[in-house]
């Protein structure tokens, strides 16, 4: 069967299912012999973006390494929900040490493998945004700078969800968390400079940096697969919506991840040695409203006392990303097309 080139508007969600793709482009998860590194029975919430992201990432990495993979996990939701011992959802050697040290533990694993001459075994580090962009950041930067042979994946749900939704360095402006409450004249998180770890990772000029979302699982897998084909420090930053922390419907996890990208709030790109090599274009641009209104953490912007001024500032953030990363096709950019 010859597959037809995809025209995205043919699918209402602008997503692409496996059935529309040529076999070689289909998701790992579509394969009957998929690795299933993270088996069912774990205790993630319904609609957890992190569980979905981790399963795709680890399965793709397992396949790319011929199942010769060791995972090191930071403390956090993924760690807690996957190993309620005596049950463990992991089908690969997996270790959790502390919140802040996953990249350094991974460094140690990689060093030991090198000393043992086990060049066939690869190392995966993973953690949430708190463990990565905040408390684990020094270890992450050290691992990058030494170019240790570790693929580190940050599952970014934009706050400390495991401890009950507190602000992290990855929490977006205006978002309500338990420590940035929706009260006072400037409700929610402050507008700061942000801490864009993918860009900071690029500044280390490591072999590979990429962002992805759980809305584009094939893209996520392809990036893992490519990352695994390289040696040295590699960083993948995956946006994973969190129904609990975002105050969103469990059914909207994929939709929100897609809207984050399509609005321009979360740019999806990849970079090698500090230079951007590819950008996932916005397929159908949406205003940030569409993304924000589905989430309880932004409800204070749309309630009895709406804050169009704050929404406009967030739209400004999206617009800046679109310009900075070239997220629109030239054509779309010229026509200024925005779905109303």
């Amino acid at each position: 069967m010859v597959a037809q080139p995809i025209k995205f508007y043919q699918t209402g969600s602008f997503a692409v299912g496996n059935r529309l793709l040529p076999p070689e482009q289909r998701s790992v998860q579509a394969a009957p012999d998929r690795a299933n590194a993270l088996t069912c029975g774990h205790r993630a919430c319904q609609g957890c973006g992190e569980a979905l992201g981790a399963r795709y990432v680890v399965d793709a990495a397992l396949r790319a390494s011929g199942r010769q993979l060791i995972a090191v996990n930071a403390t956090g939701c993924l760690e807690v929900f996957s190993t309620p011992y005596p049950e463990t959802a992991w089908q690969l050697p997996w270790m959790h040490s502390l919140f802040a040290n996953a990249p350094a533990v991974a460094t140690g694993v990689a060093a030991a493998l090198r000393a043992q001459g086990r060049t066939d075994v690869r190392v995966l580090g993973q953690g949430g945004d708190g463990g990565t962009v905040d408390i684990g950041f020094a270890c992450l930067s050290g691992m990058f700078e030494r170019n240790d042979d570790v693929l580190y994946v940050c599952y970014d749900n934009e706050a400390y969800m495991n401890t009950g939704v507190q602000r992290s360095g990855a929490t977006p402006p205006a978002a309500r968390t338990a420590t940035t409450q929706a009260v006072g004249p400037e409700p929610g998180n402050v507008f700061g400079q942000g801490k864009n770890v993918p860009l900071i990772a690029m500044a280390h000029e490591i072999p590979y940096v990429a962002t992805a979302t759980v809305a584009e699982l094939r893209d996520l897998e392809a990036k893992v697969e490519y990352a695994m084909s390289l040696q040295g420090a590699r960083y993948l930053h995956v946006l994973v919506p969190c129904p609990l922390g975002w105050g969103s419907s469990s059914a909207d996890t994929i939709r929100l991840a897609r809207l984050a990208k399509e609005s321009g709030l979360f740019p999806v790109f990849e970079a090698e040695r500090g230079v951007i090599t590819g950008v996932s274009k916005i397929r159908r641009r949406v205003p940030v409203d569409d993304y924000l209104r589905l989430q309880g953490r932004y409800a204070h912007l749309f309630g009895a006392e709406p804050r169009p001024d704050v929404v406009a500032r967030l739209q400004g953030c999206a617009d800046r990303n679109i310009q900075r990363f070239g997220l629109l096709d030239d054509e779309m950019e010229e026509s200024g097309e925005v779905r109303q």
Binding site: A100, G108, A112, D148
Partner: peptide
């Protein structure tokens, strides 16, 4: 493998990783 780490916290953490990998 001689690893120049970025802190003592990383030194012990890397030692943990190495030890648990059998080195």
């Amino acid at each position: 493998e001689y690893v120049n780490v970025e802190s003592e916290f990383a030194a012990m953490s890397a030692a943990i990783g190495a030890s648990v990998t059998g080195s």
